[in-house]
Amino acid sequence: MTDKLDQIHLLSNLARGLVSIYDAGLSGSQIRSPYPASLERGMHQLAAHQISIGVPPIAGLQDVFNLARQPLGTWGLEFDETLIGTGSDALIVRDKPTDICLEWASEEDAEALFQSEIMREVFDLCIEQNIPESYIAFRKLLIQRQVLTALERQRLKRQPELKPLRDILMRAYQPAPRSAVEDGNYWLCAHCGGLLLRDRDGFACENMRCAGSGRGEALSADNDVLWLEGGLRRYISRPGLPEITLQEELKSLGLNVTLWPAFDAYDLHFAVNDKVWAVDVKDWSNPYLLGSKLAKKVIPAPQNWVWDRAFYVFPDDRASEQRDYLRAFKSRWQAPSRTIALMMSDFIDLVKREIKKGRQNA
């Protein structure tokens, strides 16, 4: 396989198909042909490439699952390094889509933010009515409350900021899968607040980065427990967690931080020593792919939200997973003017130094 575009289409189709099958399994649906269209396309592409290089082609869905559980670098298809990084990541682990799988599932869509029609509706309605406070409140709710009871949702939709979005809020959450019930309770992840799901080893968070976090709150299965629909869990709630973490850390330093200014022109806006900083938090497994996507992208500076310095910031645990994460990102990234990339702890240290410098010069 030599054509990079073919590789992109293949990985994207397979990933989206695997995510669709995973979602169907959560809802109790049986896996049967015809499979999701994206998976069918991916399987045909994969078989054609295997034949072209003299590798025995896949014979069916089980072969796809077997491959998806193996590191991409072992598939024998000579994937481009910018697409798979070190090649050590698989698309499925413990029968769940991995971060790299979810990144590929969104690759051929316009933006991960608009993966869900629900967020498109929220975005359009809030812009039309010029209610940024509702946009911020809604998005923050999805990040901080992946799981609700039906009664809690009824109360939330009466809050002033959320009231304009009450009909959309009703559709953002769906009944939690009954397969996640144990001894009459649903259990939440102690780290992210997501739902613990049953798997071959017991119960675990859908977000594999929460491994070992253990059980948090218990919710009685008699209380009509709801959880976010799949696109919102994966592309709004999960990557939004480090955004909220960074905002809270900066607020603890005494800074006035605005989330998602100008309806998400970027993630965080604040001033340090009379200079305005703009931050986009990026939480991707593959730094090569992320660097390629952001190669020439300039963080916007819309009216009333212009900035003096801009930053791409990555959660520290990405560097724990891949020691040279920042170097790998920069190898594919062309830094725009006044923009730098840092791991989160290094960025916070920079903010602290700037605050200290401002106090010394006061």
Score class of each variant (00 low, 15 high):
V181S: 05
E182T: 09
D183G: 08
D183W: 10
Y186D: 06
Y186N: 06
L188W: 08
L188T: 04
A190M: 00
G193E: 02
G193Y: 00
G194N: 00
L195G: 01
L196V: 03
L196C: 01
L196F: 00
L197Q: 11
L197W: 06
R198N: 12
R198P: 09
R200L: 15
D201Q: 15
A204T: 12
A204G: 13
C205E: 00
N207C: 06
C210D: 02
A211P: 09
A211D: 15
G212A: 07
G212M: 06
G212W: 06
S213G: 07
G214L: 05
G214A: 01
R215Q: 13
R215H: 11
G216A: 09
E217C: 09
E217S: 10
E217G: 07
E217F: 09
A218C: 09
A218G: 07
S220N: 11
S220Q: 10
D222T: 13
D222W: 11
D222I: 10
N223E: 13
V225I: 12
L226G: 02
W227I: 11
G230A: 15
G230K: 15
R233F: 00
R233C: 02
R234M: 08
R234L: 09
R234G: 04
Y235T: 01
S237L: 07
S237Q: 09
R238I: 06
P239A: 03
P239R: 00
P239E: 05
L241E: 07
L241N: 05
L241P: 02
L241Q: 12
P242K: 00
P242V: 01
E243T: 05
I244E: 05
T245A: 12
T245K: 11
T245E: 13
L246Q: 00
L253K: 06
L253M: 10
G254W: 06
G254V: 04
L255I: 05
L255D: 04
V257H: 12
L259Y: 15
L259G: 14
W260T: 03
A265H: 04
A265M: 06
Y266S: 05
Y266T: 04
Y266I: 10
H269F: 15
H269G: 07
H269M: 12
H269T: 08
F270S: 04
F270A: 07
A271R: 14
V272M: 03
V272C: 04
V272D: 03
N273E: 13
N273F: 10
N273L: 10
D274P: 10
V276H: 03
A278C: 08
A278I: 05
